[in-house]
Design a binder for these strands. Structure first.
Lengths: 132, 132
DNA sequence: CATGTAAATGTTATATTATTACATAGTGTT
DNA sequence: AACACTATGTAATAATATAACATTTACATG
């Protein structure tokens, strides 16, 4: 169960935009889209994004510098994320596979590292693009 | 076995620098370090980096926008990468764990996606930083 | 060895992504 | 009211990455 959190004005505007978007959104594309609502500066966007990532409402797709709404209601607050990314159409979807997340959460290598978080990005061709 | 590839002048200069570095290096830090060797512009660095990534001599740490030499002689040419990243000292090491790479290479989710590549980044505290 | 072609290089300018620094305002305690 | 904490506003700038164009090098093959 995800902890409830009251979003502030800017956080809500930006989350709603990302949530409604069909795919991941980039920071400056978000900025252009919310300027009519009074959010004028990059920093205002980045601050909201940081907070939204922190509380797990959105995730950052690191390889794309883009942000996507969390599609997984039982998400462990961004501590364990996995995505599949189509290299042709750039469609991104969040993978919620219990076996995978258990496997990775329990993964321990020989380095003596204690992991608190992971991010996994798969790349390939989505169904649509594959059949083209 | 990794395919042999003759590096060009710039590629060699930049690879050697990254290979000798203790940790991941950022593009502009690379640039500053090779200016005395005649590589003056960002694009020259990025072109070499792109090629080196493509042939698997280095990897990009996406969450850090930094580059590290491949530490795994049997590396599948950057198609399957995993790293552990210390969030305190920013030390990064490449994970070469056969079970993990097999597990991920064989992973198939319900989306019908065909994966050709993945990148996994684990975050936590390394041994040293944990004991501080 | 000339010629074609792919890869690499050099250079300038510019686009994109992200943060620093500083001032102000709102929100919820106690 | 006083306090702490979070969020906001604004300007400037830093850091990361690519576009566009001209030239050169490497090397296979006719």
């Amino acid at each position: 169960m995800q902890k409830q959190y009251t979003l502030s004005r800017n956080q809500k505007i930006i989350f709603d935009l990302i949530d409604k978007s069909r795919g991941p959104m980039k920071a400056y594309s978000i900025l252009f889209n919310v300027q009519k609502k009074g959010i004028k500066a990059p920093l205002q966007v980045y601050r909201a994004l940081d907070k939204l990532v922190e509380i797990g409402k959105i995730h950052k797709i690191e390889s794309r510098n883009a942000f996507i709404a969390c599609q997984n209601s039982s998400c462990q607050i961004s501590k364990a994320t996995a995505f599949s990314i189509c290299e042709s159409c750039e469609d991104v979807s969040e993978i919620s596979n219990t076996k995978l997340s258990k496997y990775l959460s329990n993964f321990a290598d020989s380095s003596g590292m204690k992991y608190s978080k992971y991010n996994l990005e798969f790349f390939g061709l989505c169904k649509k693009c594959k059949s083209k």
